[in-house]
Nucleic acid binder design. Sequence first.
DNA 1: ATACTATAGGTGCTCGCGCACGCACACAAG
DNA 2: CTTGTGTGCGTGCGCGAGCACCTATAGTAT
Lengths: 153, 153
Amino acid sequence: MADDPDVAAWRGLLVAHSRLVPAAEAELRAAGQISLSWYDVLLELNAAPGRRLRMSELGERVVLSRTRVSRVVDELAAAGLAERQPDETDGRSSFAVLTPDGRDALRRAWPVYRAAIRKQLSRLTPDQCRELATLLGLAAGADHAAPPRIAAR
Amino acid sequence: MADDPDVAAWRGLLVAHSRLVPAAEAELRAAGQISLSWYDVLLELNAAPGRRLRMSELGERVVLSRTRVSRVVDELAAAGLAERQPDETDGRSSFAVLTPDGRDALRRAWPVYRAAIRKQLSRLTPDQCRELATLLGLAAGADHAAPPRIAAR
DNA sequence: ATACTATAGGTGCTCGCGCACGCACACAAG
DNA sequence: CTTGTGTGCGTGCGCGAGCACCTATAGTAT
């Protein structure tokens, strides 16, 4: 009843996520580093041209909802790791910009995060990781890319 | 900086989970079926001998925390899909038992859930699903099996 | 210029979730 | 029988997450 390939893969996804992600999160916390959500946002900002991104762009790239992004940026701003910058050409829009402190935090967190990832995936060889990444990327692929709210448009 | 196999697999896991799982959940909801949490619990109960399980056993098998299990069973009981049964040989312990209505709900939800899973994983061939299941199972494997609270024992 | 629609973003509220704690009971030792 | 320790569960509380709603501005047609 429940051992079709799809179902097995599905349960694997659920179980792996529920075990690995909290474990990694706990390691970051234990090391006194920033949370995964913060990290994700800072990372995208750092990778963006000018180290800044509009809120909506940020929301699309990060694993968080737009709502959550707005609040995380608030928190980051309060912590001095990012700041809001109004878009002068579009009054509705505003940017989140990475501050130097934000880059520092990112740099400090990276080795810890990296180590946590390695540890969580230590049962897999690099080749298996590559394979896994490919399959997951494929599964989450293109047309799923942005059905954020409604199925049809 | 971020294209090591581990990291790619990690981000794949995060992204795939954040896209696929809410989508499936939404499909269940749209079809007027029970939630994923409820489904998981009912499924384990159904598979258990006597269609009943101690709360702690349930907590280990399901993707939910023990705390959450306790509350989900409350909800299921309120909905008539399960009931609590005191363990007569151990006054501390109690069972959650599947009711006939619970089995019905499970049977009704299964085709929908199944279809949702298929749809979410439709970009993968059966072989790829098998491969994915293997890798995820391996990654979440044995020694991660139960570090629920404390690392060392 | 005016009015209408679409889009970017923020916020109140609710709900899901788990930790920390407390209670009841089992079990072992004296 | 009494006392101490470990274990199974339930629950108060706080936190994170998202939906619905609202405001402000841009873009467009008349």
